[in-house]
Simulated assay, not measured.
Amino acid sequence: MITDKFDLLGPAYADIGREAARLAGGQTNIFLYVEIGDGWVGPSLFKDEGATLRYIDPITMALSDLLMDAWCL
């Protein structure tokens, strides 16, 4: 049986969302921007605070690993 790419990416994206929300203190009003290439990943995570966006630092290796795993799918 051929696996649809979304069958693989759906759970990977859910894991990324959970880790991003954890980094934002459980908040779900967040924005994740990612640049990625062969062997590198550059994520930026922001929390919507109404009139402003707050940059969330530090980004963990766990998030970077999840992003790289999804990209490799």
Rank of each mutant, 00 (worst) to 15 (best):
S64I: 02
C72W: 04
I16D: 01
K47L: 11
R18C: 11
N29S: 13
E19S: 03
M61F: 06
D57C: 14
L8R: 14
P58H: 02
D7I: 15
N29W: 00
S44Q: 09
C72T: 14
T3Q: 08
L67A: 07
D4H: 13
W71R: 13
I36H: 04
K47C: 09
T3L: 10
A21W: 00
M68E: 01
I16T: 00
R22W: 09
P11G: 04
L63F: 10
D4E: 12
D7R: 14
G25R: 08
D38V: 03
D57K: 15
A24I: 05
S64W: 00
N29M: 03
A20G: 12
A62I: 02
I2A: 12
T60H: 07
Y55P: 14
T52M: 10
M68G: 12
G26K: 06
V34K: 00
N29R: 07
D4S: 10
L53I: 01
M61I: 00
I59M: 05
I2V: 14
S44C: 08
L53H: 09
R18I: 06
I36E: 13
M1Q: 06
V34D: 07
W40L: 09
A70Q: 06
A24S: 14
E19K: 01
L53N: 12
D7S: 12
D48N: 13
G39H: 10
G42L: 07
D15T: 05
N29C: 06
L32N: 07
D69A: 13
F31Y: 07
G50M: 08
I16Y: 03
A21H: 02
K5A: 11
L63P: 15
L9Q: 09
A62C: 10
V41L: 04
L45E: 02
D48R: 00
Y55S: 14
I56G: 10
R18G: 15
L9E: 11
R54Y: 01
S64T: 07
